[in-house]
Amino acid sequence: MKIGIIECGPVPAPLRERYDSYPAMFRAQLQPLLPAATFETIAVAALGDVAARDAYLLTGSRHGVYDDLPWIAPLKDFIRAAARLQRPMVGVCFGHQIIAEALGGRVEKAAAGWRVGLEQYTTSLNGDTQSVMMPAFHQDQIVVQPPDTEVVANTAACPFAALRYTAAPILSVQFHPEFSLPYLTDLITCLSQQAAAPGLPPQPALDDKGMRWIGDFLSGR
């Protein structure tokens, strides 16, 4: 399986000397779960032929889906083309939001403001309802659920925190399973000059369930 990781935004400049890019974070954690897969980083402004890869993962971004940027509309077109071709797609944070926008949902700045830190989600991603802790870092979220989707994770403040699409093989999540605890902590420090509503305080270790859900989805399990 050839998986294209669409880099929708870079790691913030102050953190680039210490941390890998977002595609590298995903690759490092997904490769052990998908040993036969190959990964290609794709610049969001140079998407290429949607049929050239078997599956796609869309990363987070500091931008909003409503921003007036030249690559937003082509990315939505690419998502719709991938859905028509039944290419498996995973969206994370911004990726979650822009897939929803492309396929009939709507995204806005959240009334609750920034959510940063660890959040406790109610999820049925693995078939059983349970509560899990995941890293959150967002001020936008889905406010209108796209058609042909089921909610598989939520919080009181974020009712569409993870969606499984029923008309195409798509899974998207608002949280950040790729974040390590040190990266999450340093990212919060970068935001400290802005108004933020913190989530739960960082814990000694992060749960790897989110990345395992993505690995299982991409492998067809």
Score class of each variant (00 low, 15 high):
Gln130Thr: 09
Thr185Leu: 12
Pro159Ala: 13
Tyr183Trp: 09
His63Met: 11
Met25Phe: 10
Pro201Arg: 11
Val152Trp: 02
Lys2Glu: 12
Ile188Glu: 13
Val144Asn: 10
Leu33Phe: 01
Asp186Cys: 13
Ile99Ala: 14
Ser124Arg: 13
Ala28Arg: 15
Met1Phe: 01
Arg16Cys: 05
Val143Trp: 06
Val144Trp: 12
Leu187Gln: 09
Gly199Lys: 00
Leu30Phe: 04
Pro88Thr: 10
Met211Ser: 06
Ile170Ala: 08
Asp67Ala: 13
Ala162Thr: 02
Met89Lys: 06
Pro146His: 12
Glu40Phe: 06
Val116Leu: 14
Ala46Pro: 03
Ala37Thr: 00
Val44Glu: 00
Asp77Val: 07
Ala196Arg: 10
Ser131Val: 09
Asp207Trp: 13
Gly60Ala: 10
Arg164Asn: 05
Val65Leu: 12
Ile5Pro: 02
Ala46Trp: 00
Arg16Gly: 06
Thr41Tyr: 02
Leu171Tyr: 05
Ala195Phe: 06
Ile72Tyr: 12
Ala52Ile: 04
Ile170Cys: 08
His138Met: 08
Val144Met: 14
Ile3His: 01
Leu218Met: 11
Pro10Ser: 10
Gly117Lys: 03
Ala157Trp: 04
Thr123Lys: 07
Leu34Lys: 00
Ile79Phe: 13
Thr122Gly: 08
Ala45Lys: 09
Phe175Ile: 04
Ser131Ile: 05
Gly9Cys: 04
Ala168Arg: 11
Asp208Ser: 15
Pro14Cys: 03
Val143His: 04
Ser61Tyr: 11
Met133Ile: 00
Gln194Leu: 14
Cys158Gln: 10
Ser192Met: 09
His96Phe: 09
Leu85Cys: 13
Asp148Arg: 14
Gly48Phe: 01
Asp49Asn: 14
Ala195Asn: 15
